[in-house]
């Protein structure tokens, strides 16, 4: 499903990523851990096509996304759901509108939007608050909306960059539980996190990064730096 081959990212003299090689199969749940500056965010940005590798390939379904033209990027991004630490919700739009917006940009019909948005909001437990603005929600609720937006066009891959970074333990567990449920339905989930407790308890594949390198790749492992 995802193959990263020899990916290196160099900013002037600093190597943010150094010869990363890894494969992620369909339906996997992968946690990326490591200290600050390890290269987790750069790797995530490569997968969302916000950055391109200096050398190497990033193959998604056998297509090298590092070679995508700028006009192809929107179409790629519609196939990958992304969840951020700071939620990145549009502050002027309601919960419903934030989720619907992701479908509007994909040229979905009004009927499709009316059909899918309530279902996905129900899935993340936010249907009751569909008319609220993001400022009226708690951190955990905002992250649920962010997940709903990432999932609304049924992506095969969901990338979560520190999704629990701004949340308390209870909300964090609820979000992780939601991600695990989504993964059980067949979506690849890539989770970048600092949270040791979460990584230890979910017992899924863990990629450890340090200084831009992939130090270890262990199945059903815990957090260890």
């Amino acid at each position: 499903m995802i193959e990263i081959a020899g990916a290196t990212k160099q900013y002037n003299t600093v190597k943010a990523l150094d010869n990363i090689n890894l494969k992620i199969a369909r339906g996997e749940f992968v946690s990326i851990v490591g200290p600050s500056g390890a290269g987790k965010s750069t790797l995530i940005k490569m997968l969302t096509c916000e950055e391109k590798p200096t050398t190497g390939k990033i193959l998604i379904a056998d297509r090298n996304i590092a070679k995508l033209k700028s006009e192809e990027l929107p179409y790629y991004r519609r196939k990958v759901g992304v969840v951020f630490q700071d939620f990145k919700l549009l502050p002027q739009k309601t919960v419903y509108e934030n989720v619907a917006f992701a479908l509007e940009v994909c040229d979905a019909t009004d009927e499709e939007i009316k059909d899918r948005v309530p279902k996905i909001l129900d899935l993340v437990g936010m249907l009751k608050k569909k008319d609220n603005l993001p400022t009226e929600l708690s951190g955990g609720e905002r992250q649920r909306v962010s997940i709903a937006r990432a999932l609304v066009h049924s992506p095969k891959i969901l990338i979560a960059d520190e999704p629990t970074g701004n949340l308390d333990p209870i909300n964090s567990w609820e979000i992780i539980d939601l991600l695990l449920r989504i993964n059980r339905q067949g979506t690849v989930v890539i989770l970048a996190t600092h949270n040791k407790e979460i990584v230890d308890r979910i017992k899924k594949r863990v990629l450890l990064m340090k200084g831009g390198k992939l130090i270890s790749d262990r199945i059903k492992a815990g957090y260890c730096i």
């Binding site: 929107p74 990145k88 919700l89 917006f101």
Partner: peptide
């Protein structure tokens, strides 16, 4: 930025 990330052209 959000518009770009959700795939708006």
């Amino acid at each position: 930025e959000i518009m770009r990330l959700v795939g708006a052209n």
